[in-house]
Design a protein around this nucleic acid. Structure first.
Lengths: 343, 343
DNA sequence: TTGTACGCGTTATCAT
DNA sequence: ATGATAACGCGTACAA
């Protein structure tokens, strides 16, 4: 009832800690301690203070608190959101990852500051810390070329990255074992006797390049003479992939296997093949990446590389806090698995 | 070069405005004005101040700024993220919407505070404002039952909502014209002579209920004697829908048309029908909702209701700021269109 | 267990 | 066009 009244009422003009202290007949620091669950304050006193605060519709001013305590308790999450551009291939996966990461952050009582990768300028990200808006940064995706991330790694900005893990990472990364994923695809094609392989993606993205490198390795292991060609995609949307594949096929170029950088791209490829009168997998074998939920129910069900991302979010958050606490967390490659379905 | 040095170097222990003022041989307020692009400060002075700030790796402490200025320049965006739960039906759409909204916010120089709908407790959201963490709230989705939103509407918390628009909205809403979408589906089934309609969704969600109500209306317009049954889904994932449909079909229950609450649900329904030996659209006609990118390329291509969401994000942001500035923005229903494909 | 005194880094007000 | 001064609301030493 009391709550309902307050909820329905107007927000008073800035009730402060002083007001609560006065009403509770204690001093301001005691109120402060009560709100921090300090063991120093007698439970009874605490109760009374909190009750009065509720009645007054009071909440601790976080800006004052952050200013004083010199901690923001917020983490910036930087990712490419589907804005004006159509939503791309990794989108469902990235959305899931955002959810996991946020969850991990909320559990630790951190605010999540959502940011777009405005520029590759190191300064823009340093600014997040300098202006005391966040205590650390989580990058979801490296974008094309991670040179700026390597630069950022040389500063003392605490940050972790979801993306391709380098052999000697200049910054803490969590990502799928893309190379191994590629190897699995390569071996599969090899065992199917495929010779003319098309890689569908964009090798300026580290993750994609690693997948492609793995593909070459997996094919080469058996001393195969298979050829790999690349079709570089400007973005990773269904439409772009469909269009690029359609034009390639119209030019009469053929292949007997496709390794796609994502499931969405793989679906687009199969759609383009069908439009050109080519059958999957009889004429062209196709492997995707991610094992997105719809992959299993696509027609035909998609053969793909599954990455074990259950703990990716948690890992990223844990490592970031290790970093903030002065630790030196290591990068992690998540295991990868070939899911053979119909393509 | 100077930038590179700074970027590579350590963050000095809290450079403050005082330091910059001293180095630039001006007073603190002048530095403050310089950073606010105040016309009061001579361009030349401004240049010098900013240059020195760069060199020193200085950025205005936002917490101090917010405390003093009593504005946070941040907006909370509250949405259900795909966390532990599998990613649901509306997910791609919601992700897109999040992107649009964030974009609109960033353009206005607002920080985006990402929040989960922790509870339906009005107080939790009031707290965001009381604790000065945000100036307003954007809710992406109403959840099951919007009573708490109606309560919140009685407070002076500035907020807007994406979701179902009521006839006499108790709060500012932007959403698809769900009722009309349902009518279009109903008329379509009517013209196809379908009689046993299944609605696949969850009517405790306002948007879904409006779609279902529209369906009934569209069917009834021609004096049809069609029957509508409901299959209530616990969540809107592909798997859940597939499972629920599978069990219903196993029980021998039949229908000759399905109106699904989303495209993902529609795809699951078609998959379940196929598994039961039923053909779409010969045996069962199916209509989805959203016209998600993959809908056109599903096999068979999905007939669906498209909502014009291009400006949804912009609209939400605009209306929220009208609210913050003391205005009374009206709710908006976005037009809706039947896209006839193969189902 | 609680209170006193001070400063966190900024911006607003007023004066010059 | 710029400077002096006083808050903004809180948390932390330190004292009691």
């Amino acid at each position: 009832m009391a709550r309902k009244d307050r909820a329905a009422g107007a927000l008073r003009a800035s009730v402060t800690m002083d007001d609560i202290a006065r009403l509770a007949k204690v001093s301001k620091p005691t109120v402060s301690r009560a709100f921090q669950n300090s063991p120093l304050v007698k439970p009874q006193t605490r109760q009374r203070i909190l009750e009065i605060a509720r009645q007054q519709g009071y909440a601790v001013n976080q800006n004052a608190s952050k200013l004083r305590a010199k901690r923001t308790n917020s983490i910036a999450v930087v990712m490419h959101l589907p804005a004006q551009a159509p939503v791309g291939a990794g989108a469902p996966f990235m959305f899931q990852l955002l959810g996991d990461v946020s969850q991990g952050l909320w559990i630790r009582g951190q605010d999540v500051l959502l940011c777009a990768p405005v520029s590759d300028d190191v300064y823009a990200y340093q600014d997040l810390l300098l202006s005391k808006r966040a205590d650390g940064i989580i990058f979801l995706g490296q974008g094309a070329g991670d040179g700026w991330l390597r630069d950022l790694g040389r500063t003392d900005v605490p940050f972790v990255v979801w993306g391709g893990v380098r052999d000697a990472p200049a910054y803490c990364t969590v990502g799928s074992d893309n190379q191994r994923g590629g190897v699995l695809a390569g071996r599969r094609f090899e065992s199917l006797g495929r010779r003319d392989i098309l890689f569908l993606g964009n090798t300026s993205h580290l993750e994609m390049r690693q997948r492609r490198d793995g593909l070459a390795q997996g094919l080469g292991e058996a001393g195969s003479d298979a050829r790999i060609e690349d079709l570089e995609l400007a973005d990773f949307t269904f439409e772009t992939a469909l269009d690029a594949m359609g034009r390639r096929l119209a030019r009469g170029e053929r292949m007997d296997a496709i390794f796609a950088g994502s499931d969405t791209i793989a679906m687009a490829a199969i759609t383009a093949l069908r439009a050109a009168g080519l059958r999957t997998p009889q004429d062209v074998s196709v492997i995707g990446y991610n094992d997105m939920p719809l992959a299993a129910h696509f027609e035909p069900p998609l053969t793909t590389i599954r990455q074990d991302t259950r703990h990716a979010g948690t890992l990223l958050v844990e490592k970031l806090f290790q970093l903030i606490d002065g630790g030196r967390p290591v990068s992690t490659k998540l295991p990868t698995e070939l899911i053979v379905r119909a393509t």
